[in-house]
Design a protein around this nucleic acid. Structure first.
Lengths: 220, 220
DNA sequence: CGGCATCTTGAGTTGGGTCAATGGTCGTGG
DNA sequence: CCACGACCATTGACCCAACTCAAGATGCCG
């Protein structure tokens, strides 16, 4: 998951951003095939991106929260591959890429920052490939919750109280498992006194225990 | 999988590349924790990258053939997250990132090219997430072979005769399945007269039939 | 308060993992 | 040139984690 020096970044961003946008909950910002115009930074709210396979299948490829930048998938072919959808009312900063590319008159710090952002996205994707490819469902969900907790922490929120903005099905899609399985594992984690789950509110009771859920698995 | 205008790109590359390197089959170019110095373009040969999980688990995250650029995972934290290993004797061009970043005196075409390369890597990773997350094993392997065939085509080789440089286990790791499963499916595809498999040599007999293997699946 | 979407739980099935044995292929050294 | 050993690939038999299908429960919004 994309992370990091959000406040810093948002400050610098002002120099690049002239347009802000509001996206209503459930609305689409761009979709597969849209011409690529710009990158987007989440100012407030929550965004998911998903890939549509030729047949009806959908795979959630990312969740983005304030400070995160997304839309990098559009650069390759100048057309977006993913669809991005707001999971709640969301404010977006529009960052035209050519403006970024032309920015380094003197300072190329910003340039480098964008390379870093893309690199992070790549690293995050590799992590997810690893999750889905070589962990069982419990480990995946544990890893997901821990990563989310970490992101909350980096943004200055409590890492123990998470409010999920996505529904179970979207978590499942992201992690390569079915809704029912997600639900069962939440219940199990609750039974193990690792979590307290109240709808979309997660209270992490035993962070250490949750971490131990990872790497328990005999496989691979 | 990374692709595209390889010859063009390799030509332009000469302006950026001062160092070439040879990596022996089985040797490591960089590994998890190595300081990030540069990106690498494959000149000849074959490279895999893999992620090591804390416990012993390994996940192959990419295969790179001539014309492909890899190493982007190191930009985010200035340390490589993956390990890159040559699957045969390989020639590599070393591309220092700061040279790329400082290159746009006049032309920022090269800049943009690197953004494109990273974007492609992201798109490819999303494709793999989709493969692993929402397809069954047969579909995954079919998709893998088709993608490989496509890459061969783009490099001017026959898309019908593939020489796999990686072993079954590495294919399995990349696709999130076990060696035995890979093997069984190769056999099945052969029985269905889609392929002729002779060790690492794959002859695609029925490209259309192979494509039909995708999207047959009732799930998700 | 009713209707709809989401979430949970149960019961039964199955795709792909596990374990184990065999068969090929290649490289090395006598 | 052949034989040996190591590694890799294939195949079979069995099993289990996660999927499917189905029914309720819960919560949310008009």
């Amino acid at each position: 998951m994309p992370i990091g020096d959000a406040p810093d970044f948002l400050r610098k961003l002002d120099e690049l951003v002239y347009v802000r946008k509001r996206v209503k909950s459930g609305a689409t910002l761009y979709h597969t095939g849209s011409k690529f115009h710009a990158l987007y930074a989440v100012k407030s709210g929550f965004i998911k991106t998903e890939n549509l396979h030729d047949d009806g299948r959908v795979q959630v490829t990312g969740f983005y929260m304030p400070g995160d930048v997304f839309g990098f998938d559009g650069i390759a072919t100048d057309e977006h591959i993913c669809t991005s959808i707001a999971l709640e009312d969301t404010e977006i900063c529009v960052i035209p890429l050519d403006k970024v590319e032309r920015f380094n008159h003197g300072i190329d710090e910003i340039q480098h920052h964008f390379y870093k952002l893309m690199s992070r996205e790549i690293v995050r994707d590799h992590t997810v490939m690893m999750l889905i490819g070589s962990m069982n469902s419990e480990e995946r969900l544990a890893a997901f919750i821990l990563a989310l907790s970490q992101r909350f922490l980096l943004r200055g929120y409590s890492p123990y109280y998470l409010t999920l903005r996505m529904k179970r099905e979207e978590i499942g899609s992201y992690l390569g498992m079915k809704v029912e399985t997600v639900s069962r594992i939440f219940t199990k984690f609750q039974d193990l006194a690792l979590l307290e789950v109240q709808q979309k509110n997660i209270h992490i009771l035993d962070m250490h225990g949750l971490k131990k859920m990872l790497g328990q698995h005999p496989s691979n």
